[in-house]
């Protein structure tokens, strides 16, 4: 009896492992194939059946990709866009989230309904007027244009409001009685208590800004002002049949975020799980 139960459990554990090993291969293989292809010559990439390892490891695809796309500018633009969007989202959403959660003021519900309206609507509904506003003042093809739709974050406001609501009022009252004014209570006492939520919002904002394609494609058409995502879209147009170069370009575009992910894997996953549902 006992040994048959034991056996059933072993079989089940074996099944779970088999599932995960097959699943992991399916999840990782595309990246392995991207890596291997990026070192092959075009001729080698067209051999049927394909070679697994490159016959000789070519770095020409990487130099070709870097010759047709200004990768250093793309990295720089993407990093600046992400930093600004994260800083704006975290700073402004913290302030507004705190006020909506903890302070009393007239018109609070009406103002908060603006936040909810924005959250419920897909971003594409704002794109054309946002683009036209920038075009009118000649600010397309700038870093500011990349950051523009992310200057404030309705989702961030909503999310941080939730986490401020989870902090007892007594803490703010104690700080106030200790002589802090409203700003000091917020900045020195309350905000530090939401560090985990701020980090989650930062990760969420960064991951989505990095992957965003439509906005950078529309607003920054100058090759030097593109992001990694929109740059890749351009590379696709230039090398439509040269897959090794496209794999090299994709690899260059994905490496920074994947490296960050390897180091901060737990924060990434927990950050996204916390903000989940958006």
């Amino acid at each position: 009896m006992n040994s048959s139960l034991e056996r059933a459990r072993k079989i089940r554990t074996g099944g779970v492992y088999a599932f995960f090993i097959i699943g992991s291969i399916i999840m990782i293989f595309p990246f392995v194939w991207m890596f291997l292809t990026s070192f092959k010559t075009v001729e080698e990439s067209m051999i049927v059946p394909p070679t697994i390892l490159p016959q000789s490891w070519q770095i020409k695809n990487f130099t070709d990709a870097m010759a047709s796309l200004p990768f250093f500018s793309l990295y720089k633009n993407t990093i600046l866009m992400i930093i600004w969007r994260v800083v704006c989202a975290v700073a402004f959403s913290s302030m507004a989230g705190y006020a909506f959660a903890k302070l009393n003021f007239k018109g609070k519900n009406i103002l908060f309904s603006l936040v909810l309206i924005q959250m419920m609507l897909p971003s594409q509904i704002f794109i054309t007027p946002q683009y036209q506003m920038l075009a009118k003042v000649g600010l397309t093809n700038t870093i500011f244009a990349l950051v523009f739709p992310g200057l404030v974050s309705a989702f961030g406001t909503f999310f941080l409001r939730q986490s401020y609501m989870g902090i007892p009022d007594e803490i703010a009252e104690a700080a106030y009685l200790d002589g802090c004014n409203q700003w000091q209570t917020f900045y020195k006492v309350m905000a530090p208590l939401t560090t985990a939520s701020m980090a989650a919002l930062a990760v969420f904002t960064a991951v989505f800004a990095y992957g965003d394609l439509m906005w950078p494609l529309i607003v920054n058409t100058d090759l030097k002002m593109m992001t990694l995502s929109s740059g890749l879209a351009t590379l696709r147009g230039q090398f439509s049949t040269n897959f090794p170069v496209m794999m090299a370009g994709s690899l260059l575009a994905m490496i920074p975020m994947v490296v960050l992910y390897l180091f901060f894997q737990k924060q990434f996953i927990e950050g996204v799980a916390m903000t989940g549902g958006k």
Partner: peptide, 19 residues
């Protein structure tokens, strides 16, 4: 395993589509 399944999230959809 959780990290492996989550990996595509941190890769730009543009790069995912390419491969």
């Amino acid at each position: 395993f959780r990290a492996i399944f989550f990996l595509p999230m941190v890769v730009a959809p543009a790069a995912v589509a390419m491969v």
